[in-house]
Amino acid sequence: MSTQQFAGGNERFLRRYEYEDSWVIAADLDTFGREVDVDIVGSTAIVVAETGDRVTETEFELPGEDAAVATNNGVLTITVHK
């Protein structure tokens, strides 16, 4: 397994884990806001977050197109199968 960590302009942290059969991208939802929607378009993840009266959109490239999105205990995970 290998791990990479990324920080966005607003100190939003993403971690990417690489396994033999998949990549897992994880992000703390508290950094995005209360209301979060995630869309996968091809190999691009689009995260739209609503914080109070402000809506922000963040896009990032995924390492592939076969992706599944889940949330658990305030953590957003995107699993991309190789």
Rank of each mutant, 00 (worst) to 15 (best):
M1L: 13
S2N: 14
S2I: 10
T3V: 15
T3E: 14
T3L: 15
Q4F: 09
Q4Y: 09
Q5R: 11
Q5Y: 08
A7N: 12
A7E: 14
A7F: 12
G9E: 14
G9T: 12
G9C: 07
E11K: 14
E11P: 00
R12V: 12
R12Y: 05
R12C: 05
F13L: 15
F13D: 09
L14N: 03
L14K: 06
R15C: 05
R15P: 02
E18V: 11
E18M: 10
Y19A: 15
E20W: 06
E20C: 10
D21W: 06
D21Y: 07
S22G: 10
S22N: 12
S22F: 02
S22D: 04
W23Q: 10
V24Q: 11
V24C: 11
I25L: 14
I25T: 09
A26K: 12
A26F: 03
A27L: 09
A27S: 11
A27F: 01
D28N: 15
D28G: 09
L29Q: 14
L29H: 08
L29E: 06
L29Y: 02
D30M: 07
T31N: 08
T31V: 12
T31E: 11
T31A: 13
T31W: 04
F32L: 13
G33V: 05
G33W: 03
G33C: 08
E35K: 13
E35W: 02
V36D: 02
D37M: 08
V38N: 05
V38K: 07
V38D: 01
D39C: 06
D39L: 09
D39H: 07
I40S: 06
I40G: 03
V41H: 09
G42L: 04
S43H: 10
T44S: 06
T44F: 02
A45R: 05
I46G: 04
V47R: 04
V47C: 06
V47H: 01
V48R: 14
V48H: 05
V48I: 13
A49D: 00
A49T: 06
T51Y: 07
G52Y: 00
G52E: 01
D53Y: 00
D53S: 05
D53I: 00
R54Y: 00
R54C: 01
V55R: 10
T56H: 12
E57R: 11
E57S: 11
T58G: 00
E59C: 12
E59Q: 14
F60L: 15
F60D: 01
E61M: 12
E61H: 09
E61N: 13
L62R: 08
L62C: 10
L62I: 08
P63L: 09
P63S: 08
P63R: 12
G64Q: 04
E65G: 08
E65T: 15
E65M: 11
D66Q: 13
D66V: 06
D66K: 13
A67Y: 00
A67F: 00
A67K: 01
V69S: 04
V69Y: 02
V69M: 06
V69G: 02
A70F: 07
A70T: 14
A70C: 09
T71L: 13
T71K: 14
T71P: 08
N72C: 10
G74E: 03
G74I: 07
G74Q: 07
V75F: 07
V75R: 14
L76Q: 03
T77D: 01
T77N: 13
T77R: 15
I78H: 02
I78M: 05
T79K: 15
T79A: 12
H81C: 05
H81Y: 11
